[in-house]
């Protein structure tokens, strides 16, 4: 027993070291920084809770919180639905599975530098691929996806769905793990597709859904690269200014690392709370029947 523990610590050592160095230290340090004023070149100077006090009064901060929550609430369920639907379609054992699977996964692989400009071309209000298609379909005044504050967030939510390939792969694996016998039993009961989906597929998939939704939520709360590249300054009218983009602007553009650290900590607490709530709420819905 004693020697097992000794060996175990040895095995766990890389992570213990990694955890202390690359996680615990930075987390604690940034907690300290959140009470200071500093920039890349200036050493931190302790200023108490000034940063937090400022945050409470910072309208733009609250605006980014609202924008971020709106985005999370729209993007997470939507991409989850798309990903599950795609996974279910692929799970029907169609021919060319590998091919389709790659195609669905591919958008998650296109480098950001290229992707940003491709989206700008696709969503351009006047000559974009999307609006040209919509006009052909008979829509007389398609929305100005990029320039209208009412639509800019919708654009980003749509873009998020292109990234559902990653989650789809995991759902697909989860689906393949559901024992066929359950479907056969349902067939015997004469269950139709909808009923089978409701009573067999979704419950059996629920742990995977929970996992993906939580990971998706954590990721969406930190949404950064696409809006940063596509909508500089959160344009139009800060409708696409998100928590992390504002945080980055504070850290690098405005040279306010202390304030940025405080924002980071707030985001950490929000993430922890939401994850906890999600786990709590899902306790009854998620089935872990195989230990």
């Amino acid at each position: 027993m004693k020697s097992e523990a000794r060996i175990a610590y040895l095995f766990a050592m890389p992570w213990i070291l990694g955890f202390l160095t690359f996680l615990l230290y930075p987390v604690l340090a940034s907690f300290f920084y959140s009470f200071t004023d500093f920039s890349v070149l200036r050493p931190p100077r302790f200023i108490g809770i000034e940063n937090y006090k400022e945050m409470v009064q910072d309208e733009v901060f609250w605006m980014t919180i609202r924008n971020t929550f709106t985005y999370v609430v729209a993007a997470v369920p939507l991409s989850a639905t798309v990903a599950i639907l795609l996974a279910m379609l692929l799970n029907t054992k169609v021919k060319g599975l590998a091919f389709y699977r790659t195609l669905f996964y591919v958008p998650s692989l296109v480098p950001m530098v290229a992707l940003g400009i491709l989206w700008l071309w696709i969503f351009n209000g006047e000559h974009g691929l999307l609006n040209m298609s919509l006009e052909k379909l008979g829509m007389s005044k398609p929305p100005n996806w990029l320039g209208d504050p009412a639509w800019s967030k919708v654009t980003l939510v749509m873009i998020a769905m292109w990234g559902s390939g990653n989650a789809m792969v995991i759902y697909l694996a989860g689906l393949q793990d559901i024992p066929q016998s359950l479907y056969e039993a349902a067939d015997l009961d004469g269950a139709r597709l909808v009923a089978k989906t409701r009573h067999v597929t979704l419950p059996m998939l629920s742990p995977v859904i929970l996992f993906n939704v939580i990971m998706g939520m954590i990721g969406s709360l930190q949404v950064f690269a696409v809006p940063y590249v596509m909508f500089p300054n959160g344009a139009p009218a800060r409708s696409t200014y998100f928590f992390t983009t504002y945080l980055f602007d504070n850290a690098f553009r405005f040279q306010r690392m202390g304030y940025a650290s405080a924002m980071g900590w707030v985001l950490f607490l929000i993430t922890l709370t939401l994850t906890f709530v999600a786990l709590r709420m899902s306790e009854r819905q998620v089935h872990y029947d195989r230990s």
Binding site: Y25, F32, D37, S39, P43, P44, E54
Partner: peptide
């Protein structure tokens, strides 16, 4: 105001550099 205080006024004591 904050910038003038925090960045331009260098007389305030400085915490130890990290790490």
């Amino acid at each position: 105001r904050r910038y003038q205080q925090q960045v331009m006024n260098k007389s305030i004591t400085t915490a130890e550099a990290q790490p």
